[in-house]
Amino acid sequence: MSLTERIPRRHRGTTALIAVLIGSTGIQTTSAVATTLFEKFSPVSVSGLRMTTAAVVLLLIARPKFWRFTRRDWLSVVSYGVVSSLMNVFFYLAVDRIPLGVAVTIEYLGAFAVAMFGVRKFKDGLFAVGALAGVVLIAGPTFGSTDLLGYVFAVMAAASMTGYTLLSGKIGSGTEATAGIRGLSVSIAIGAIMWSPATALALPHMTVGDWGIAVFIGAVGLALAFSCDAFAATMTNPAVVGVFFSLDPVVSSLVGLALLGELLSASAYIGIALIVLSGAAVTWRANRSAAVITTHTEALQVIRTAQMPQTPRE
Rank of each mutant, 00 (worst) to 15 (best):
F91W: 11
S145P: 06
L257T: 13
S267I: 14
Y151M: 12
I275Y: 08
A158F: 07
A239R: 09
L167C: 02
Y164C: 04
E39V: 12
T175R: 01
I293S: 08
T236G: 01
A239Y: 05
A233P: 00
T234S: 04
S185N: 10
A157V: 09
E298F: 10
D229C: 00
T234L: 04
A139I: 14
I138Y: 12
P141N: 06
L3C: 01
I138A: 14
A34E: 14
A266H: 10
R72W: 07
W284S: 05
P64C: 10
S85H: 08
V77F: 10
S42W: 03
P64F: 06
I190R: 09
A154C: 10
I293H: 03
A158T: 13
G180F: 02
H205G: 03
K121V: 15
L149Y: 01
V95M: 12
G134H: 13
E314R: 15
S79P: 00
L222E: 10
F153L: 11
L260Q: 13
E5H: 06
L184R: 02
T14L: 02
S24L: 10
D124L: 01
L75I: 11
T236L: 01
L75Y: 06
E262Q: 15
I272K: 11
A94W: 06
I293P: 00
T105W: 07
T25Y: 05
T4A: 06
K121Q: 12
R68F: 07
R120N: 12
D96G: 09
S45G: 11
S42R: 08
G130N: 07
G209E: 13
C228A: 15
F69E: 06
L260G: 11
T175L: 04
L277K: 12
Q307K: 13
Q301Y: 12
D96M: 09
V186K: 10
G256M: 12
G101P: 14
T178K: 04
A111E: 08
A131K: 04
T142E: 15
G130I: 02
E262C: 00
T36K: 09
L166W: 10
D248G: 03
Y92M: 15
L17D: 02
M1S: 09
M194C: 09
L86S: 14
A32W: 03
T52K: 02
L166G: 04
I61N: 00
T207I: 10
V119R: 07
